[in-house]
Amino acid sequence: MMKFGDYLRQAREARHWTQPEAAARAGIEQSYLSKLETGKSYPSDDVFGRLVKAYEIDVKNLVRDLDPGEAEALRDIESLRATRLTLHRTAQRLSRGWMLAGLACLVIGGGSTGAALTASDTSHEEYIYLSRGVIAPGEPFDVFDLVGVPLGRAPAVVADMRAQQIALQDRIDEEVRIQRAMQGEGYFETVEGGRRYFRALDSQTVIERSPLRWFWVPGLMFLFGALGCFTISWRWK
């Protein structure tokens, strides 16, 4: 913030004008310009218009830079008064706009945060079943268990079991089923070439996180946004 006289002096010096030269361009006396620059006098409406034209002053920037007390001293100048009123109304509209934006962010942020706070997780049991391969017609449901059976000592029995184990190993095609409904110790399913036996292997508890927990992120963002909007609205005012 600055005084009107300082503003005139800086504007003149920025153009590298002497006081006599600046006074001549504005069509006023040098002594009068000197009083204006030292704050001993204030211009009339007509003189202010001359200074604005000579110095190419942006009245809006002048109003923004002037000390409030100086602006009050220049209240009789019509163009300054009109500009101050326009800027004031513009600032009010912007301030109200930022205030409304802040309120909207506050409502959205509060709602999102509330949803995140009240969110609850759910859980359910899952049952894991394993089928080791396709059981041919006429074979027992546990035929593939033979693969893990230790071999006996009799050479003939060992050779026969070894041959069966090798044949079964080539047919092993494991398939895992995870489902919510429990099917007891096991269940059959007809497939091409025979059937599969799915034996209960394990169970697990699955916790499903509520998607509302993600509302923490937008909730906090909107709340901080509301704080920023209110700050801007206050500063603009």
Score class of each variant (00 low, 15 high):
58 D>Y: 04
59 V>Q: 11
59 V>N: 06
60 K>N: 12
60 K>C: 08
61 N>S: 10
62 L>W: 04
62 L>T: 07
62 L>M: 15
63 V>F: 04
65 D>I: 12
65 D>Q: 15
65 D>P: 07
66 L>A: 07
67 D>I: 07
68 P>E: 15
68 P>V: 13
68 P>K: 10
69 G>H: 08
70 E>C: 03
70 E>G: 08
72 E>N: 02
73 A>R: 15
74 L>E: 09
74 L>P: 00
75 R>A: 13
75 R>G: 04
75 R>N: 13
76 D>N: 10
77 I>Y: 03
77 I>T: 09
77 I>C: 08
78 E>K: 14
79 S>A: 14
83 T>A: 08
84 R>T: 11
85 L>N: 13
87 L>K: 02
87 L>E: 13
88 H>L: 11
88 H>I: 04
89 R>T: 00
95 S>Q: 05
98 W>N: 14
99 M>R: 14
101 A>V: 07
104 A>T: 13
104 A>Q: 04
104 A>Y: 06
105 C>D: 14
105 C>M: 10
107 V>F: 02
107 V>G: 05
109 G>E: 07
109 G>W: 08
110 G>E: 02
110 G>C: 12
112 S>F: 15
112 S>D: 10
112 S>M: 15
113 T>I: 15
114 G>K: 03
114 G>L: 15
115 A>P: 01
115 A>G: 13
115 A>W: 06
116 A>D: 05
116 A>C: 05
117 L>H: 09
117 L>D: 03
121 D>T: 00
122 T>E: 12
123 S>E: 15
124 H>T: 00
126 E>D: 12
126 E>C: 01
126 E>P: 04
129 Y>H: 07
130 L>W: 00
131 S>Q: 00
132 R>W: 05
132 R>E: 14
132 R>L: 14
132 R>G: 01
133 G>N: 03
134 V>Y: 07
134 V>N: 12
136 A>C: 05
137 P>L: 10
138 G>Y: 02
138 G>D: 00
139 E>L: 06
140 P>A: 09
140 P>Y: 00
141 F>Y: 07
141 F>M: 11
142 D>N: 15
142 D>P: 01
143 V>R: 12
143 V>K: 01
144 F>Y: 15
144 F>C: 03
145 D>N: 15
145 D>I: 10
147 V>W: 03
147 V>D: 01
148 G>T: 12
149 V>R: 14
150 P>D: 06
151 L>R: 06
151 L>W: 10
151 L>F: 07
151 L>C: 07
151 L>K: 05
153 R>T: 15
153 R>L: 09
154 A>Q: 11
155 P>V: 13
155 P>F: 09
156 A>T: 09
156 A>P: 02
156 A>I: 08
157 V>W: 04
159 A>V: 00
160 D>N: 12
160 D>A: 15
162 R>A: 10
162 R>P: 01
163 A>I: 07
163 A>N: 03
163 A>S: 13
165 Q>R: 05
165 Q>M: 06
166 I>P: 01
167 A>R: 09
168 L>H: 09
169 Q>R: 05
169 Q>W: 01
